[in-house]
Amino acid sequence: MIIDISRLLNSHTPTWPGDTPFSYELTWSQEETGSVNVGQFTTSCHTATHVDAPFHFKSDGMTIEKLPLEVFVGNALVIDVSTKGQITTDDFKGLNLSNIRRVLLKTETWTGNEFPTQIPVIDPELGSFFLKNGIELLGVDLPSVDPLDSKTLDTHHALLKNGVHILEGLRLSDVDPGIYRLTALPLNIEGADGSPVRAILETLD
């Protein structure tokens, strides 16, 4: 079974205050061309479900087209932390992280169609913890892995320092905790600081 964990892109999709909203319109209609409809869209690289490239928060960081694609395809562990105001290494006690390279955090904080005003705090110490446990991707159902008003982006930088890539804006409300196969490939956009993705989970037999 395939579970779509992407947020819908339309004119109502919430985005960071002041950032470029998503829009789609027809450039030419079939009636005009005589054969096809041709559309165009405009959006921020960080609207809805997206991957952050290190260049997003570090000027000499890697851009989106240079990220290793294998990080965004493979088994992922979904963890329910919906009761937590702060997510720390303690929330991973008792979990078997053997052979787990990707972790998705289900916080249930951003379930509606309004941009959240407050989100759980993700401890930057998770960066070194993930490195020790071989985890290379952190996915969240949040617009950011850092507090919404953060300027230092401590968790972004801690994850980068420890080789952990970032997937944000997931939709995990209908996903039970467990192991799935994740596919969440960023677009091949030269020089970009991020990219929207169509993220899916597949149940394992």
Rank of each mutant, 00 (worst) to 15 (best):
H156T: 04
H156K: 04
H157K: 15
H157Y: 10
H157L: 13
H157A: 04
A158R: 01
A158P: 08
A158C: 08
L159T: 07
L159N: 10
L159G: 08
L159Y: 09
L160C: 02
L160R: 06
L160M: 13
K161M: 05
K161H: 11
K161G: 14
N162V: 10
N162Q: 03
N162E: 03
N162M: 06
N162A: 05
G163T: 12
V164G: 08
I166G: 06
I166D: 02
I166W: 01
L167W: 06
L167C: 04
L167S: 08
E168M: 09
G169D: 05
R171Y: 13
R171L: 12
R171T: 09
R171S: 13
L172M: 05
L172G: 01
L172P: 03
L172R: 00
S173P: 00
S173F: 01
S173N: 13
D174Y: 06
V175E: 08
D176Q: 15
D176S: 14
P177C: 04
P177V: 08
I179H: 00
I179N: 02
Y180M: 07
Y180V: 07
Y180D: 06
Y180W: 05
R181E: 14
L182P: 01
L182M: 13
L182D: 02
T183A: 08
T183F: 01
A184P: 14
A184C: 14
A184D: 14
L185I: 15
L185Y: 11
L185G: 00
P186D: 10
P186N: 12
P186F: 02
P186G: 10
P186Y: 07
L187G: 15
L187Y: 13
L187F: 14
L187T: 07
L187C: 10
N188D: 15
N188T: 07
I189P: 00
I189R: 04
I189C: 10
I189A: 12
I189G: 02
G191C: 11
G191H: 06
G191A: 12
G191K: 04
A192W: 12
A192S: 15
A192P: 10
A192N: 12
A192I: 08
A192H: 11
D193P: 01
D193W: 01
D193S: 15
